[in-house]
């Protein structure tokens, strides 16, 4: 059974189970209608909200985790870029410039993470922990800890508009995922990332610029977080420096791990992370539909993530024999 060995199978199975549950428990879950030139429906919402934060963050996080690292600062970087974009449009800047400024600063913060890790030699968890604390501080400082409301239709369109009937974030993020996956798999870049995560020393000796690879993935993660922060702010036409992206790094890690990318690095699946993000968003929505208070929702999420990790754990794999071993690449 070759199919069963694919890492994509289990998240897909979980997603289907959840969807079937929803189809039974809440009638109209799959109801989609065409109104005012765009699609509406619960499933569309899942894609839209899933794309805006977990999927976008998971894109960057997947590559970071593939190099054997982790990025805890994405939530704070979201807050920074959202705040910068909001303040820019309030200062009269056009939408493109505002978004560019937010993305630019976010990428820069990601690169600082990368520098601290690749050049200074800090552990990823520590460097990004520092950025998580300092980045949130930066966002609060920029805004004076105040919410920044704005009225800019083109910025709001980024989160609430539609292209060809589909919400803009869905088009944007799925497009980014496809392009990223295509670039990584069609060039040697994906291989370099996996090699760095698998064995950094051997990769370096083989001539791979592992420092550059690390720098790039953290920069990319910052960029993704920045875009996500801009979309979050655009969605409600306001940037809340304290709330945007709060604990979202956990969602991103959840999506990546559930999607079958091992935390030990050396292997990644962007498609898996996309499915993982959809799984997370569906789970969130299911809990909401079942009247579970949003604050309590982390409990089932934690249970699922632990269960996934246990399935991945070497100890359980050894016990159940070779059947669940991953295929040698």
């Amino acid at each position: 059974m070759k199919v069963l060995r694919s890492t994509l199978v289990w998240p897909l199975v979980a997603l289907v189970v959840l969807l079937v549950f929803n189809a039974v428990a809440s009638p109209g879950f799959f109801h989609v209608e065409w109104k005012d030139g765009r699609l509406f429906g619960t499933v569309v919402d899942v894609f839209n909200q899933g794309a805006r934060v977990p999927m976008l963050l998971a894109l960057g996080m997947t590559l970071v985790i593939a190099t054997g690292g982790v990025d805890l600062s994405v939530g704070s970087i979201m807050a920074v870029s959202g705040a910068v974009a909001a303040m820019q449009v309030n200062a009269g800047a056009p939408m493109v410039q505002a978004v560019g400024a937010g993305l630019g600063l976010a990428t820069l913060l990601g690169l600082v993470n990368g520098l601290l890790i690749a050049r200074v030699g800090l552990q990823p968890i520590i460097a990004t922990l520092v950025m998580m604390v300092a980045g949130r501080g930066l966002a609060m400082l920029l805004t004076g800890s105040q919410m920044v409301p704005f009225a800019n239709r083109s910025l709001t369109w980024l989160a609430n508009g539609s292209v060809g009937g589909l919400p803009v974030p869905v088009v944007l993020v799925l497009g980014l995922a496809v392009v990223t996956g295509w670039v990584l798999r069609r060039t040697a870049a994906g291989l370099f990332i996996e090699a760095t995560g698998d064995n950094e020393k051997a990769s370096r000796l083989a001539g791979i610029q592992t420092g550059g690879v690390r720098l790039a993935v953290y920069g990319f993660s910052g960029f993704c977080a920045g875009l996500s922060g801009v979309l979050e702010a655009a969605n409600i036409s306001a940037a809340d420096p304290a709330r945007i992206g709060d604990t979202r790094e956990l969602d991103a890690i959840f999506a990546v791990v559930a999607g079958g990318t091992a935390l030990t690095g050396g292997r990644f699946s962007l498609a898996g992370s996309v499915v993982g993000a959809l799984l997370l968003q569906t789970l969130t929505l299911t809990l909401y539909n079942q009247n579970v208070a949003p604050a309590v929702a982390p409990v089932p999420k934690a249970v699922v993530i632990l269960a996934v990790c246990l399935l991945h754990s070497p100890r359980l794999r050894a016990r159940f024999g070779k059947r669940t071993q991953p295929v040698a690449a």
């Binding site: 604050a295 309590v296 934690a302």
Partner: peptide
């Protein structure tokens, strides 16, 4: 995960 669990 423990953090999620305990906070929830």
């Amino acid at each position: 995960a423990g953090m999620f669990l305990a906070r929830g």
